[in-house]
């Protein structure tokens, strides 16, 4: 089989797995609404707590708004990452996938892709709510914000999918996943918050590209590492 054919077959398998997860989610929209509602609550709670829409407040603490935004974007994502493999384990369907002759790394990429698309969809709605609640109009810098969301959610989904698979057979998985996940994704959160501070508040993008480079590096390293170690994570002992 030619390398091109193998690549196309691999991409087809990844999409088959991702499409299956997205189809199931579209049918119930359970995780989507739960995650989105959690994000909405975070935005509201911080809005009441800090009066963050106040211009004086923004000038006094310029990093606070991007911080609020990324707490609302990142934290609720754990709900989906926990569900991703938990449901496969509960229904026994993970065995069905593992029985197939496909490369196990492709299984990871399929699950990761579904989680990434899901998180980007939730994040886009959350961003729209954030801009409405905190009075940020659409500007020419908004596409940079979208790029930050794409890159940060990619790294978060890659690590989260791997750790979600690791803890899915453990009884205390709901507690364990955030404890394992958040220390690892600190570079993502730091880069995303700092990058967003420049995009949302500062006029010049002096350090923005550095933060974007950090996000790209994190994404590449953790996506590749997760792909390689996934086989050992899902293997029964």
């Amino acid at each position: 089989m030619s390398p091109t054919r193998r690549l196309l077959d691999g991409l087809g398998l990844i999409w088959t797995l991702a499409e299956k997860d997205l189809r199931i989610e579209l049918r119930s929209r359970q995780a989507f609404y739960t995650t989105l509602f959690f994000s909405f609550l975070i935005l509201m709670v911080f809005n009441f707590a800090f009066d963050a829409a106040n211009q004086d407040m923004r000038k006094a603490a310029p990093g606070i708004l991007p911080g609020i935004l990324w707490v609302a974007l990142i934290f609720p994502g754990v709900i989906q990452l926990n569900r991703s493999f938990q449901s496969e384990r509960e229904d026994g369907t993970l065995l069905g996938i593992l029985l197939s002759p496909m490369d196990r790394g492709l299984i990871f990429l399929g699950k990761f892709l579904a989680n990434w698309i899901f998180l980007v969809a939730v994040n886009l709605v959350t961003l729209a709510i954030f801009m409405a609640v905190y009075n940020f109009p659409l500007t020419s810098s908004t596409p940079w914000m979208l790029l930050l969301i794409l890159l940060a959610s990619l790294g978060f989904s890659a690590v989260g999918t791997l750790f979600g698979a690791m803890v899915s057979s453990i009884r205390t998985r709901e507690v364990l996943l955030p404890i394992l996940l958040f220390p690892i994704v600190i570079p993502v959160i730091l880069a995303a918050v700092n990058g967003s501070t420049e995009v949302l508040l500062a006029e010049n993008f002096r350090f923005l590209f550095q933060w974007i480079k950090i996000l790209v590096a994190f994404d590449v390293i953790f996506l590749a590492a997760s792909y390689l170690v996934f086989e050992y994570v899902v293997e029964e002992s």
Partner: peptide, 8 residues
């Protein structure tokens, strides 16, 4: 186990 997706 059936290894089937109940929501499909």
């Amino acid at each position: 186990q059936s290894l089937l997706y109940p929501e499909m």
